[in-house]
Simulated assay, not measured.
Amino acid sequence: MQSTTSPIRRQFIHTSAGPLHVASAGAGFPVLLLHQTPRSWDEFREVLPLLGQGFHAIAIDTIGFGDSCKLPLEQHSIERWAQLALEVMDGMGLQKAAVVGHHTGAVTAMEMAAASPQRVAALVLSSCPFNDAARRTAHAGKRTIDDVEVRADGSHLQELWQRRQPFYPEGDTELLTRFIGDAIKAGAMASHGHIVVRNYRMEERIGQVRAPTLVLRAGRDPHAAPYADHIAAAIHGSRLQTLEEGMVPLPDQIPARFAQAVMEFLQQHC
C-alpha cells in the first residue's frame, strides 16, 4: 500500500439530535467508519488517509462520543445511532455508502444495513459481538469493562487503564493514552455505550442484512473473535477474514493491514 497522501478534513453535520462531528479524507465512493465504545473518529486516524487513496472515507463521532453532541443516557440505542448515521449521510448528500464498523460500530453498521438496505452498498463488520437473548441474560446487571467510579485523586483513570491494558499490545502506551482521552471525553457514555450494545436484539436483525459483507476477525480479541464464525454463517454470502495479530484496538493497532483488508473487499463491491 502506498504512503498516506490524503489530508483529513473535519466538520459538523446537523442531525435531528444535534451536531455530529465527522472527519473525512479522499474522494470517490463514500465509506462510513463507525468506532467502538468509548472511542471517537481518532480510532481511524491512520486508516482515513489510507482509505482516502481510493474512496471518500468518513469517520463519525457517534452521538455522546468525541466531539459530537450529547443526549440523556436513556435516549441512546443502536437503532437511534443507526438513524443518526443515515442522517449524516443525508447532510453530506450521500444516497449510498459502504459502512465499516468496529466493535460497537459494527453493531450499528449491521442495524443500518438491516433497516435501510437500499443505502448500504457493502458492509464490513470488524470484531462484531453477537448479542442475542442468551448474552443479554448472561451480562444483565454486570459491570462493564469501562465502568469505574470517578475519584477526586484521579485514581479511577489508572484503574481504567489497567482494566483495558490486557487487551492492548504489551508496552504500547500510545494507544492506551488515546483510549483514555476518548473515555474522559465520553464521561458516563464510556460505560453506558456497552449497555446500549447489550440491549440490542441482534438475533432479530442479522437475518435482514442483504449487503455484501466482510466479517473481519481480530485473532487476539477475546471479546469478539469467538463470535465471528456465527456472524458470518448468519449473513448469507458473507466472507470471513482473520487478522491473526489483531487485538481490541484493531484499526489503530495495525491500520495498514486493516485498511488493506477493507479496500480489497470494497474494490470488489463498490
Rank of each mutant, 00 (worst) to 15 (best):
L51A: 05
E79F: 12
L84T: 08
S126T: 03
M202S: 04
D172T: 08
P129A: 11
A186I: 11
S24W: 01
G237D: 14
A134L: 05
D42R: 12
G207V: 03
L32Q: 02
M112T: 02
Q165L: 15
V120P: 04
T62Q: 12
T37Y: 04
I78R: 13
R210L: 15
L50V: 05
V150P: 03
H236F: 05
E264W: 00
S6Q: 12
F258N: 07
P49K: 10
A186E: 04
H223Q: 05
R80P: 00
E245P: 04
I58M: 03
A82R: 14
R164S: 12
A140H: 03
A17T: 01
P30H: 13
H236C: 09
G64E: 15
S6A: 13
F167Y: 15
R210C: 13
A59P: 01
A57M: 11
G237I: 12
R151M: 06
I58R: 00
R80H: 07
I235S: 04
H14D: 10
S238D: 06
D221L: 01
L157H: 08
H76E: 15
Q83V: 08
G141Y: 09
P255I: 12
A25T: 03
S116A: 15
R239H: 10
D153C: 09
V120E: 07
G207W: 07
F12I: 02
A134K: 09
R205G: 06
P49G: 06
R201E: 14
A211E: 05
P72M: 14
P169V: 13
D252Q: 15
A114L: 09
F130W: 14
G26E: 02
E245Y: 02
Q75P: 02
R80I: 05
Q208L: 14
G141M: 10
R151E: 00
G18A: 04
F65C: 13
G54C: 08
G171I: 05
L50S: 06
S77T: 12
E203V: 00
V148K: 02
M112F: 07
V120S: 09
H21L: 02
G64F: 11
R163T: 10
G181W: 06
D153A: 10
R220N: 07
A82S: 14
G141A: 05
R178H: 10
E87Y: 04
V124K: 00
R164M: 13
Q75V: 06
G93Y: 11
K142I: 04
H56K: 06
A97V: 09
Q2L: 08
I254K: 00
A115I: 05
T137K: 09
T15Y: 08
R210D: 09
P49D: 09
A186F: 10
R143N: 10
M247L: 14
G219Q: 12
P249D: 11
D182H: 00
P169W: 11
